[in-house]
Design a protein around this nucleic acid. Structure first.
Length: 345
DNA sequence: GTAGATGATTTAAC
DNA sequence: GTTAAATCATCTAC
């Protein structure tokens, strides 16, 4: 009859904070909101976190596809529950209507019954929302956790990074510009470059012997180039004006002021070119050359702890022995802890 | 399946 | 903010 309405019961429902929280989350994740652009915020955040890799869009669409799947399931289930709720309410109302023929039924009693039904169904709905939220959280954490989809860098990228590392072994702290350059060359992000150098430094330091072979490889690889470049630099220095002969594609790595290593190299070779006038790429090549000279002249026992290559790079504390290490007399400006700029212009 | 390699993250120091 | 160091999670070669 007229009194048999379910509206009253719905209006009486106090706003459940837990339910509100779930609703808000589902809305934010694009599960319960408008159809278009669902979960875009989360996907965008995840995309940003993934570091902008080339397969980013694929994973992005994968995320969206899965989110859509969750959304569909949620809506189907929600619809089912609502339908079941309505059907059951109608059924109970019909029963009450029939009963009203035999006994008087007050509107309050009807309201109470409807209230019970709704509470039951809303608790089911709450469970649905909760499990949907959990599903979204799992999906999101899987998508956001970069470690789960770690990809090794390409061989070329690793080579570029290694070349830089071993040719700057005296101070393997690329400046921001150098990092950007390397990132561009390797098609990775600057933070990936930083990560790589962080990992490389610590792993190299921990086991120099293990990396000796690799160091030799990269040193030999660039030895010819270094020899040519140094020769050219010397020639330039003798014949040309003091302008920096810096046309390397790897950017300009200038030597601000000669360090121990560099000075050693000068005496080692007997050459007398000035570090401040030669492009810093030469300095890296000097590193390489020195290593090659040491390696060919020295005896490698495989452990490398006291090899000719490593000790000049690492100080007693395990830090990198650099020309600009604070303990050094020459230049107390740089070293671990500050952004190094052996490539400063 | 496993060991080692490797990229990413976390924590603490600076 | 960057860094070292430890750790995690995944990849890769066997």
């Amino acid at each position: 009859m007229r009194g048999l309405s379910i509206r009253g019961a719905q209006e009486e429902d106090p706003p459940d904070p837990q339910l509100m929280r779930l609703d808000n989350m589902l809305l934010a994740e694009g599960v319960s909101g408008p159809e278009k652009g669902g979960g875009s915020a989360a996907a965008a955040a995840a995309a940003a976190a993934s570091g902008g890799s080339s397969d980013n869009s694929i994973e992005h669409s994968d995320y969206r596809a899965k989110l859509t799947q969750i959304r569909q399931i949620y809506h189907t289930e929600l619809e089912k529950y609502e339908q079941a709720c309505n059907e059951f309410t109608t059924h109970v109302m019909n029963l009450l209507r029939e009963q009203s023929r035999t006994r008087p039924i007050s509107p309050k009693e009807i309201e109470r019954m409807v209230g019970i039904i709704h509470r039951k169904f809303s608790s089911i709905q709450m469970q649905l929302k909760q499990s949907t939220c959990e599903a979204v959280m799992i999906l999101r954490s899987r998508f956001l956790d970069a470690r789960r989809k770690r990809r090794n860098f390409s061989k070329q990228a690793t080579e570029i990074l290694n070349e830089y590392f071993y040719s700057h072994l005296s101070n393997p702290y690329p400046s921001e510009e150098a990092k950007e350059e390397l990132a561009k060359k390797c098609s990775i992000t600057v933070s990936q470059v930083s990560n790589w150098f962080g990992n490389k430094r610590i792993r190299y330091k921990k086991n120099i012997g293990k990396f000796q072979e690799e160091a030799n490889l990269y040193a030999a690889k660039t030895a010819v180039t270094a020899a040519h470049a140094v020769a050219a630099a010397v020639q330039n220095n003798q014949t040309n004006s003091p302008t920096t002969p810096n046309s390397g594609s790897s950017g300009s790595f200038n030597l601000p002021n000669s360090g121990d290593m560099f000075m050693n190299m000068q005496s080692l070779n007997g050459d007398s070119y000035q570090g401040s006038q030669v492009g810093a790429n030469v300095q890296s090549q000097v590193d390489t050359l020195r290593h090659v000279i040491n390696q060919t002249g020295g005896y490698s026992d495989g452990l490398g702890g006291n090899s000719l290559y490593s000790p000049h790079n690492l100080n007693a504390n395990g830090g990198w022995q650099d020309a600009t290490t604070p303990s050094s007399v020459t230049s107390p400006t740089e070293g671990p802890g500050s952004v190094h700029s052996d490539t400063s212009n």
